[in-house]
Amino acid sequence: MSEITAYDKKATRDGFGAGLAEIGASNPDVVALCADLVGSLKMQQFIKQSPERFFQVGIAEANMMGIAAGLATAGKIPYTGTFANFSTGRVYDQIRQSIAYSHKNVKICASHAGLTLGEDGATHQILEDVGMMKMLPGMTVINPCDYAQTKAATIAIAEHHGPVYLRFGRPGWPVFTPADQKFEIGKALHLQSGSDVSIFATGHLVWNSIEAAKILASEGISVEIINIHTIKPLDEEAVLDSVSKTGAVVSAEEHQRHGGLGDSIAQLLMRKMPVPMEYVAVNDSFGESGKPAQLLDKYGLGVNDVVTAVKNVLKRK
């Protein structure tokens, strides 16, 4: 099998901006809202194309979620844009009551998720958002891995009727998925076949898993990599198919260990196919200021941490 290589480096948030502009141009029901972070969310192109369908709400995220629920009630497809921290924890009750419980077709688009936000520090580096969102009944939770996948996901969620949490990030990141891909919600992507261990990775950690697999291959360890871009609903069949072959699992995500993708996989395996498993995730800790790569290393999300997790799980196999 040929090695996975990156053909570009771009931020996932740029993929969101490009996807929003594209779906905005083709679907007149799409509207967008932003809480004073237009530049950060890369929403300028959409605004330029469709100024009448853009709503600047100011630094008032609770109101933004409510307005989005109202727009959806009347048949629009609202995309809200702000940082992941302010898209979730700050407005959890608004999302819970006005959007999730009320079955509103709102797309909550959340940038700057996780440690890779970098220098702004822990106030902004949310690592609990996936857990909060996946607990809400009926909420779809998506965390794409690169620019191209984020763009495709941004376009695809307009066709899905129901609330969606779309999570992406700030830094430039390797782009390795096809530019012309069609995004299928809930369908895991098989990136690389292997026989010793299955890595289930989401978001930025997919690339770190690919890099780790190259190191492991040089040591004779055969790694299967599955990209779980949709954390909820989880593609259970893809997980079980892979695990039935490898018998060992590592999950990898830029999120707290508690409540993230790893927990979803562990829950499934416990019920259907118990095997040794290790987490690559933040271990019950807040982040801090620093460069993205430094932070990933310090908090156990670096390439070497994936390598170590694989070796540890193989010892238990």
């Binding site: 609770a62 109101n63 933004m64 979620m65 409510g66 307005i67 989005a68 629920a69 109202g70 727009l71 959806a72 009630t73 009347a74 609202p78 009750d93 608004q94 819970r96 009551q97 006005s98 419980y101 009320s102 509103k104």
Partner: peptide, 17 residues
């Protein structure tokens, strides 16, 4: 058309409509 009870949210929804 929307759940309410947790207070403070309805006016925002009405504005969206």
């Amino acid at each position: 058309r929307v759940a309410s009870g947790s207070l403070g949210q309805g006016l925002s929804v009405a504005i969206g409509v």
